[in-house]
Design a protein around this nucleic acid. Structure first.
Length: 268
DNA sequence: CTCCAGGTGCCTT
DNA sequence: AAGGCACCTGGA
């Protein structure tokens, strides 16, 4: 919930989590093997949508088993330590927005930017809690206003991307239906979207589970653990997809969690 | 005060 | 194709 996939979840004192996606506001809590959830009565989210968000459809153990843990001691170790880790399925537009803001930002900072944007331009779901604005709404916000919201140089990416999306109403559905390669190329035409941001949007927002986002952390792990020292980031991404296979993105999350655990305290 | 952070775009070799 | 640097902002 708080590992850098989604940025609108917070931990409650009781140990449950409250999260927002689309117009939905949900509180979830793990009771043993069961995920319990509830919503305010104003919110109409149903069980099916919750299951989809948590990607409970494909049997988890089968996906896990398909990763190359038998021949990859390094991965196997991370998988043991983080068993149960899964990929959330967020609305594509929201994943794109969050990762457009993510460059050179830590998780708490990305969360804050999302929060500020939602408060300012999003719809109020229940008193005091706001949805992220749609891209249509963002298209009507100036770069200057977004800079005032502390988006920095990312403000230009958001306004320009919003403008391009406005001219292509079917953009997101086309990305979701396209093959991974096609979808990635399509996303990378948007300003501020390079390979890493595109892969995050595809993995967390479009169900493209072969996407292998390479940030500096993953680049370091792949350099030290897999001998890919001094490789180009695009080459590391291609290696990841080839080596880890159909569910490379989940492998990436295991490795990512493992490095961040070691670096805990240095970064947030 | 300087440096750099979970990238990208643009300008040079 | 590959290397170098600026870009907002804030925290170390």
């Amino acid at each position: 919930m708080d590992g850098g996939q989604a940025f609108r979840w917070r931990l409650n004192e009781s140990g449950s989590w409250t999260g927002i996606w689309g117009q939905n506001l949900v509180e979830v809590c793990l009771q043993g093997e069961r995920l319990e959830w509830r919503r305010p009565k104003q919110v109409s989210v149903n069980r099916e949508e919750v299951l989809r968000y948590f990607a409970f459809d494909p049997p988890y153990e089968e996906i896990i088993d398909e990763l190359p843990w038998r021949s990859d001691r390094f991965l196997a170790n991370a998988m043991e330590r983080f068993h149960g880790l899964r990929i959330l399925r967020q609305p594509l537009g929201e994943a794109l927005f969050a990762f457009l803001l993510s460059t050179v930002k830590s998780i708490p900072q990305i969360k804050e930017l999302c929060e500020l944007t939602a408060k300012k331009y999003g719809e109020e779901i229940v008193p005091g809690i706001y949805a992220l604005p749609t891209w249509e709404r963002l298209a009507r916000v100036s770069e200057k206003e977004l800079r005032a919201l502390k988006l920095g140089y990312r403000a230009k990416y958001v306004t320009q991307t919003a403008r391009m999306l406005a001219e292509e109403p079917d953009f997101f559905s086309e990305v979701e239906e396209a093959t991974y390669e096609q979808a990635r190329g399509k996303l990378m035409k948007l300003p501020g979207v390079g390979g890493k941001v595109a892969d995050c949007a595809l993995l967390f927002g479009a169900g493209k589970r072969e996407a292998f986002p390479v940030d500096t952390w993953i680049a370091k792990v792949m350099a030290s653990g897999y001998g890919l020292k001094d490789w180009r980031l695009e080459q590391v991404a291609a290696f990841g997809r080839a080596h880890f296979g159909r569910f490379a993105g989940l492998a990436q999350q295991f490795l990512f969690s493992a490095v961040r655990e070691k670096q805990q305290g240095t970064k947030a």
